[in-house]
Design a protein around this nucleic acid. Structure first.
Lengths: 208, 208
DNA sequence: AGTATTGGATACTATGACTATCCAACCACA
DNA sequence: TGTGGTTGGATAGTCATAGTATCCAATACT
């Protein structure tokens, strides 16, 4: 298909598609002449991915590009690739320290490896510090409770990774980490709503 | 204390503090004269909250203002206030529909109320649609697994809400929903890392 | 042949989040 | 009682991000 069709199919304006091409997020189509190129389903999916990462996950176009480059390059080291992908996820750290006291204490408590090199540790520290500064420090009970449920979720995630596949495992892991995050956030918000309404109903019933 | 001290204590530049004052995120200090006002710990905490909501949770200054106004106003309807607060959280919906097929199907399956009025439903739909478009549709197994763990997390959250307090319950619920979100995201990322490293270790051991 | 469609380059715009300047009124100390 | 440093309030300027819009020359379709 030609660009015009790509515009139709995705609803993304031509000027924006050109912008993504310039920024290296969208691969160029196969040129058939100096002023013509053909695009495929691949491009449609890629544009969906770009919009998902920017609009839903909340990445900048820049960071979305980093993630896309990771899943495009066939680097097979899942562990390291996942680390790089996480570094492209918000919240972004400006200056990285070599010690994250809150994160270390929490991770030691729940029995996970503490590696200050891993971006998520810095993000964890930042999130914990923010909660503390706001007057809602992370209690040990909450930490323990969260940890067991989060581990359960992570096991579902990891269980779904295609073990016998080279680059597709990387793609699945990287995208899965990012893409399911807003789903989990929405589900938690909905669960709050659900519990609040039940509690409200129970309360008003008992008060009558 | 005076502004200069507020600047010292928080590390936030004066110009920025003035900006937050203009935007209504920070309450003015008590004026002692036409060109002097005093600030308290209240203001220090508020500035920390603003930074937490914008930098860690990822809200725009505008949306952070909405959240802050909610916890400032002593509106006691927890249920409705929570709904408004969630609407201030990303991902932001531009056009809200009256039907969200994916969200409805998912919520019916896991036995929760489906109310298209509630912002989180729209956010859920958007996140589900994005996952689908990217080629990682939400399977029913994943949905069920996520749902039980998320409900467990939400119970921890709701359990901590001070039941016998008017406005503080609202503040706790609204901030708790927003502030613990990045913590949960970071914990999931860390759990992935943890599981990936264990699986990697197990794999390399068995292969030798 | 003539009109519409591209690729590629460049320039422009809109929004958000600050940042800087000014000024007039202080206030605190010498 | 000056006099320099500190405010509050208003206004203007900056910088980055994410597009939009224009142009042009080279095709492509009819």
């Amino acid at each position: 298909m030609r660009v015009s069709e790509l515009v139709e199919r995705t609803g993304i304006p031509l000027a924006t598609i050109k912008y993504y091409l310039r920024e290296g997020l969208l691969m160029p189509g196969t040129a058939t002449s100096a002023t013509q190129a053909v695009y495929g389903e691949h491009h449609v999916r890629r544009l969906a991915l770009i919009r998902a990462l920017t609009e839903v996950v909340g990445l900048t176009v820049q960071k979305a590009g980093e993630v896309i480059r990771l899943i495009d390059s066939p680097e097979p080291d899942l562990f390291e690739t996942l680390g790089k992908a996480v570094a492209a996820l918000p919240p972004y750290l400006d200056d990285l320290a070599d010690d994250y006291p809150r994160a270390r204490a929490a991770l030691e408590r729940i029995g996970q490896v503490y590696d200050p090199e891993y971006a998520a540790v810095g993000q964890f520290e930042r999130a914990l510090a923010a909660a503390e500064a706001v007057g809602l420090p992370m209690s040990e009970e909450r930490l323990d409770g969260y940890a067991s449920h989060v581990m359960g979720i992570a096991e579902i995630d990891i269980g779904g990774v295609p073990a016998e596949s080279p680059g597709s495992a990387v793609e699945y892991a990287v995208l899965g980490t990012a893409i399911y995050e807003p789903i989990l956030a929405a589900m938690r918000r909905l669960a709050h709503q659900d519990l609040a309404s039940r509690r409200l109903a129970a309360g008003s019933t008992s008060e009558q």
